[in-house]
Amino acid sequence: MNISQFLFVLFCLNGVIGLLFYVVMYKKRKLFTDRFGMVMAMVGSGILSFNLAMMLFFMFPFNLGTLAIISTMVGGGIGILYGALTRFQSLLAGFSQGSLGAIMGTMFGAVVENPALCGLPAAYFIDVEQHMMLFSLFGTGLVISTFGLLFYSLRV
């Protein structure tokens, strides 16, 4: 399998998980307290925008500025969507955490793709593609485990 196809499949998987989470939370939004809404918006938008920004950086060959603008808009949009379920307090928390996660994800993707940015040794240039696949798999695992914890919190 080609690496761009692999990344595209994982990217779609992340998007589907985020959308599913939004639909489930939208149905149950009457049950939330303020505090749970804030924590939910922070946790969900932070990890999801981190992973999406990292994979956007791997997928598209633009320069760093353009990608940072695109992924920050995507991350902030995710944070606003999740936060708008309850109150304005949670909207602010979700927006800050989502845009922060997107900027961090762009930086992380830049370091993985070009290890000389952080002064890492030259041995990393040999298998950059393998590192890209490993990190996107690891990020998808983190997204799945985080949303598993969030779904579980509906039962607690």
Partner: peptide
Amino acid sequence: DYQTLLTGYINGLM
């Protein structure tokens, strides 16, 4: 409680 668990989890991860 559970919500402090989630907050500490996401901050430690980032």
